[in-house]
Design a protein around this nucleic acid. Structure first.
Lengths: 419, 419
DNA sequence: TGATTTATTTTAGCGTCCAAAAAAATGTTG
DNA sequence: CAACATTTTTTTGGACGCTAAAATAAATCA
């Protein structure tokens, strides 16, 4: 069903477009903004005056690069997102540590702070307050006023319920249904949202190359578990209950090996690090502790063994690839994405799995579908998750908070007026 | 990325909202339209004057039911979609027959015309022209001028490429990549679109109950094949290449029985009518012709046999249910829909498959996900596909054609001016 | 018949956009 | 170096859409 439209909507949408354009392309002259957005010079003048007045945008003077080209005419004055307008924070939760990355409105980040925290054993009602304390302490340390932070984005490996703001299940916690958003909002008074790692990587990819990834893309995350970020019609898909796709717990074989989730035959039980390690050390035997985290060094050793010809190791990676291939085939049959991206630390072993992935795709997928899908492995940088979380958080500000010109109330909320 | 907005967009969106509201609720007084849409009485007056002027809407006078209630005050005059504004056509393609359903702008349909056509053997370049001829002949027979038809929607069992307008593969045709949209548009000069059956059923469900189905729903179609219509974030999802989900060809067992598509172990090869029939007649033997259409009477016989205790028949349905259950489990793990709907003639045997479906769901799906999904079997009416196709076609007119007030050009195109 | 009630239309005003004109700020040129 | 050219930005004037409020229309009630 369509929604009512009025001139308010028009301004909001054009302000959002203005901010998003600046965010994507960096500082731009008004004339260029006009070309990029399709808005008339008059409208650009009007909107920019408003945004400057509100302190969201500021004029950074002439563009030296352009004026150097001995051009005639009135020189351009470029506009930029005002870094001082507000701050945001990305929190990334992983096994036994959390990471905090503060950023200003222009997207410039302070060096992320990695903090050890015994997530696995922490009582679930203590987690939120602990994180809140760390945020307070680290903000103070960096000289960032808490009141200047307008929004916090949280990323977690595992299932994130974007609606309740809880973590129903994650390998980082022994407990279930850990409340995160509510305690943080209560203690800090700052709006928070939560999402899973794979979705955040998907956000980072869209931001990096909208043309390539912004249509229909499936981002498969390989690591301690197997995750999936789905980009459908240009936006990250969250599912009905706000829970992102649980690709890792999609069943592969009705009676396969035990999975962390307690059932048998999930994709993860073959293709996550612990699945591979189990296969390499004692087949599908049940005397393997699936809950113990596999250390990175152990995986590297296993990879080395496979690379130097150890057939047991090779078989384990092959099996992981095969199951992953069938999983991707099923995914493609259902979603028909344009592009499938493999990401995460598990892609280090891509060469060891490549052949079996493709063989499974051949067996498990109609040719008609296979031929349209593009595959890609992206080198894994840990900052992708942080970047994606920040991108998502800032876009929310652009579109839904600052697009609505609240005549200064936003900046009052953030505690100061910027000249 | 957001899009530029201007007052044009406002009017277009509100006109669309106006038309959609009338389409959903039937004739309404201006005051009620105001309440339903949220628009002010003044705007309603303005928009309705315009739409009446263009012949899209007309005043049907007082509401007897309301005026009968001895109410004081100026009586309401109700507005309705003008049936004479234009006509549309839904074409449904199935094995060895096509069906034509003409409807006017208000959505009132003529009795659908079912035509025998040897689709399976027809040379692929002849199909479009043959359908065009049938459309011409039947329009004439019903006294509908071809020039009064603004849009044709086509539904087909199998894969429909909404972008190229071709049928890459369908059980109705021996040939592949059958061009449909282009020849029809060329010969008839009327815009056409194509989609698959399951998506059209999904459209019909959304129209029937937006609240229930309009969020995230998966519609599983059981019949000669197994199809899927996905409703994501309120809209039917088409996939990257415009090809809807090929749920039927999602692999279940890497080395399962032969499927119509030529590969082994597809869901369809277990759970479509031919899969069940094969299982009941000669196990998974390969001397079964998967391409031969299973007649409805044969399936009924098999169902009767199972109901009266024939263990071979019972096992076949159980197996079909089990595989379907695992397929649905995988679907839920990926998409996390609110609701899963089973539809199509195959649901007649639901009671025979029920237990095994649920057992498979239990084995193949994390409890956390299962508990949030609602299941439903809708009784199958053949007109669902036609209804859905018409709904989709008319919505396109409401939103994308008539919402843009083209100052009479649309009606000129349709060949006449309506008073 | 006049008061009351309810639906619809008209009026006046506001916000947004845009085209065109004006102004600003620089380079070019004779 | 003053007049002209060029490019960017702002201002102006008008159009369109929406809304609140006033006016009008059309009925019932008493």
């Amino acid at each position: 069903m369509l929604k009512k439209a009025n001139s308010d909507l028009v301004r909001r949408q054009n302000r959002g477009l203005f901010l998003e354009t600046l965010r994507q392309h960096g500082p731009l002259a008004r004339i260029t903004l006009g070309h990029r957005t399709g808005l008339s010079p008059a409208s650009i003048t009007s909107i920019s005056a408003q945004l400057i007045d509100e302190g969201l945008v500021y004029s950074i003077g002439e563009d030296d690069a352009v004026s150097a080209e001995t051009k005639r005419g009135r020189p351009q004055t470029r506009l930029a997102l005002n870094p001082k307008a507000t701050n945001v924070l990305a929190v990334s939760i992983s096994v036994d540590s959390i990471e905090l990355a503060f950023a200003d409105f222009s997207g410039a980040t302070h060096a992320p702070v990695k903090l050890r925290m015994d997530t696995y054993e922490i009582p679930k009602e203590e987690f939120g307050p602990r994180v809140a304390n760390e945020i307070k302490a680290n903000a103070r340390k960096l000289g960032i006023e808490l009141s200047s932070i307008t929004r916090i984005g949280i990323a977690v490996q595992g299932v994130a319920d974007t609606i309740t703001g809880e973590i129903p299940w994650s390998p980082a916690f022994r407990a279930r249904d850990i409340p995160v958003v509510k305690p943080l909002e209560r203690i800090l008074g700052i709006p928070c949202s939560i999402g899973n790692n794979a979705n955040m990587i998907a956000e980072a990819l869209i931001a990096a190359d909208r043309k390539k990834y912004g249509g229909n893309t499936a981002v498969v995350f390989l690591g301690h578990g197997v995750g999936l970020g789905l980009i459908l019609n240009g936006a990250v898909y969250d599912g009905a209950n706000g829970r992102a796709a649980e690709f890792g717990h999609m069943n592969h074989l009705p009676d396969g090996p035990l999975c962390r989730c307690g059932r048998h035959g999930c994709l993860e039980a073959f293709s996550a690090d612990y699945g591979i390690m189990r296969m390499a050390t004692n087949g599908q035997g049940n005397d393997f502790d699936v809950h113990a985290a596999v250390r990175d060094e152990e995986m590297r050793e296993l990879e080395l063994a496979a690379e130097s010809g150890d057939t047991v190791a090779i078989d384990a990676f092959n099996r992981a690839g095969e199951v992953l291939g069938f999983g991707i085939a099923r995914l493609i049959a259902l979603i028909n994405p344009q592009r499938v991206v493999l990401a995460g630390p598990g892609t280090r072993a891509y060469d060891l799995m490549k052949d079996s992935i493709w063989e499974a795709l051949r067996r498990g997928l109609v040719h008609d579908l296979r031929k349209y899908v593009e595959f890609e492995v992206v080198p894994y940088g840990k900052d992708m998750i942080t970047t994606g979380t920040l991108v998502e958080t800032l876009r929310h500000l652009d579109r839904d908070v600052f697009a609505t010109g609240q005549k200064g109330t936003v900046l009052e909320f953030s505690g100061r007026k910027i000249a």
